[in-house]
């Protein structure tokens, strides 16, 4: 089965589950368009189990899709400071022990079809299993996920082994407050502590709260770097920490902060 045949199977399956989505099918000429439809259907999908054949074909598709890119591991990077690394690119192409996802309190991954956020692309490329595991975790907890904490899941089809999900603070029109700054630091600390608890070697952070959650980029980066440094010193942690940035703006901010 080639990638396109796999996509045809997966799309058929998902549309069969969700007949209302058939109206999206107007443009399906290229593999790219099929990927978009597949991604959108997974994004809006309820957390319910799938059949074994679906899982097998999805996993085969995602493994090839994910690994058909340049995969980055720690050995490809030079430390900017002891134990600290900076890398610009898609966090789902990093192969380390754990990558950090900027989740929301519902904890099920982004539910908007093809929305351009990190939660969406992590869930899409990991596979539908990730939402199922998140659903189990949040159901067991019995309430929404608070800000500033962290939970770990497997990474399924991603090149990394685990995903650490944290809900950062949301900044509204009243701007940043000391409470929100403390919550952002708490998100970083919770992820690091969880990684150490599971004796992981390397963790790659995204820029928590800076996207959809509106935290100002410069201040967020200052808190990120300061919190990680303090954590490593205080706990004598051996974690190797990658600051993964996506936007040029964040790259420049982190470069400048890590130089000083």
């Amino acid at each position: 089965m080639n990638q396109e045949a796999r996509l045809d199977y997966l799309i058929d399956y998902l549309l069969d589950e969700n007949p209302d989505a058939k109206e999206w099918m107007d443009k399906l000429d290229t593999v790219e368009e099929k990927i978009t439809l597949f991604r959108g259907l997974c994004n809006i999908r309820e957390p319910k189990s799938v059949t074994k054949p679906f899982m097998k074909i999805q996993d085969a598709f995602l493994k090839e899709w994910n690994h058909g890119r340049n995969i980055i591991s720690l050995k490809d990077l030079e430390p900017a400071r002891p134990q600290l690394y900076l890398w610009q690119g898609d966090i789902t192409s990093i192969a380390v022990d754990a990558i950090v996802n900027a989740a929301n309190s519902k904890f099920l991954g982004c539910l908007r079809a093809n929305h351009n956020c990190i939660d969406n692309i992590i869930h899409t490329r990991a596979g539908v299993q990730l939402r199922l595991e998140c659903h189990d975790l949040i159901t067991a907890q019995g309430r929404k996920e608070p800000m500033g904490k962290a939970k770990m899941t497997k990474a399924y089809n991603l090149p990394s082994n685990y995903v650490i999900h944290t809900v950062g603070p949301f900044i509204d029109e009243r701007g940043v407050s000391p409470f929100k700054e403390q919550l952002l630091a708490s998100s970083y600390r919770s992820c690091l502590a969880l990684a150490d608890e599971h004796q992981l070697g390397t963790i790659a952070f995204c820029c928590i709260s800076t996207g959809e959650f509106n935290f100002p980029n410069q201040r967020a980066a200052e808190i990120a770097i300061q919190t990680v440094k303090e954590y490593i010193n205080k706990n004598q942690s051996n974690l190797q920490v990658i600051f993964n940035v996506f936007k040029e703006k964040d790259l420049l901010i982190y470069q400048s902060l890590l130089e000083n």
Partner: peptide, 11 residues
Amino acid sequence: LNLEASKTVHE
């Protein structure tokens, strides 16, 4: 305690 409020979910 854990709380859900209009602007945040907080422990």
